[in-house]
Amino acid sequence: MEIEVPSPSQEFDALVDQHYRALFSFGHSLTGNEHTAADLVQQTFFRWAEKGSQLRDRTKAKTWLFTTLHREFLQGLRREQRLVEFDNQEELPDERRAAAIEAVEALDAEAVTSALAEIEEVFRVPLGLFYLQEFAYAEIAELLDIPVGTVMSRLSRGKDRLRQRLLARRSSVAATPLPPRKEARRG
């Protein structure tokens, strides 16, 4: 009996089908922006097309993809920081981000994602991997190249920061006065 080995293009298609949504969700949790998240996922699969054949243990493909997406995200942040330092001008308001935040606040699950995007990356990444992608502590430790204890600590601190953000949002919404009601005209 012959074992059918998938072609590289079949393997690539299978990886995309299997991991696209999870990678997009992780990218969105990092960036808070759908377009940037889609770009990160596309760049991740591009890197796989270039270098994926070098991975000897195919069971590690998921970890490789998430690690690559995270590295692409960090590389983009470094690039942005260099541009800001080089430009040395006042920051321009990011209208797209403001519009996205307004839309996100309309839904509870998306409010959490928005609050998650506001906390420091060092906490946001483990939270996204653990709660959104359902990675185990050991997998997160391997992916981020940190000890398991550090993962647990960052998750705990990250949850505290996320809770504070959500409570602050809730209290600011509750403190906002309602506009006066319009009186109905009687005719």
Score class of each variant (00 low, 15 high):
G76H: 02
G76P: 00
Q42S: 09
H35R: 09
E72D: 09
T59D: 13
T36E: 13
Q81F: 11
K62L: 03
Q75T: 15
H70R: 10
L55I: 09
P93E: 14
A100V: 07
E91Y: 04
A100E: 13
T44S: 03
A38L: 12
Q54N: 14
G52H: 08
K62A: 05
H35Y: 14
E95M: 05
R97G: 01
E80Q: 12
P93K: 06
H70M: 06
L83F: 09
T36C: 07
A103F: 09
R97Y: 04
S53T: 12
A49Y: 14
F46I: 07
T44D: 01
R96F: 08
N88T: 07
D57E: 11
R71D: 15
L40E: 00
Q81N: 15
Q75Y: 10
A100L: 12
A38V: 11
T68W: 05
R47M: 11
D94E: 05
T59N: 11
R71T: 12
I101G: 01
R82W: 06
L92A: 09
E91T: 04
Q81K: 14
Q75C: 08
R58T: 14
E85T: 06
L92R: 12
S53P: 00
G76I: 00
H70L: 10
R78T: 12
R82C: 01
S53V: 14
D57H: 07
T63D: 09
W64T: 03
E91S: 10
R47F: 10
E95N: 01
Q89A: 08
Q43V: 02
R56P: 01
F45Y: 11
E72I: 11
R47A: 15
R96V: 07
A61L: 10
H35A: 14
Q42H: 07
T36N: 10
T44I: 02
D57R: 09
L65D: 01
A99T: 02
Q89W: 02
T44A: 01
E91V: 05
Q75F: 11
F45I: 02
T68A: 03
D87T: 15
A98Y: 12
R78M: 06
R79E: 08
A38D: 15
L92I: 13
F73V: 09
I101C: 02
E85K: 09
P93I: 08
Q54E: 15
W64P: 00
R96T: 07
F46N: 04
R97L: 08
R78S: 11
Q54G: 10
R96S: 07
E80H: 08
Q75W: 07
D57K: 05
L74P: 00
E91A: 12
R71A: 11
Q42F: 05
T67E: 08
Q42E: 14
G52R: 05
A49T: 11
E50A: 07
L69Q: 00
H35P: 00
Q81R: 13
W48Q: 04
E91P: 04
L69G: 00
L92H: 10
D39Y: 02
T44Q: 00
T63Y: 04
R56Y: 07
E80N: 05
L55Y: 06
T59C: 08
L65H: 01
R79F: 07
Q42W: 05
R56F: 06
E95Q: 05
V84D: 08
A61Q: 15
E80K: 12
K62G: 02
L92Q: 15
K60H: 09
Q75E: 13
T36K: 13
D94R: 02
L77R: 15
F86R: 02
R78A: 14
V41L: 01
R96P: 00
A38G: 15
L55P: 02
R78D: 13
E80Y: 03
W48R: 03
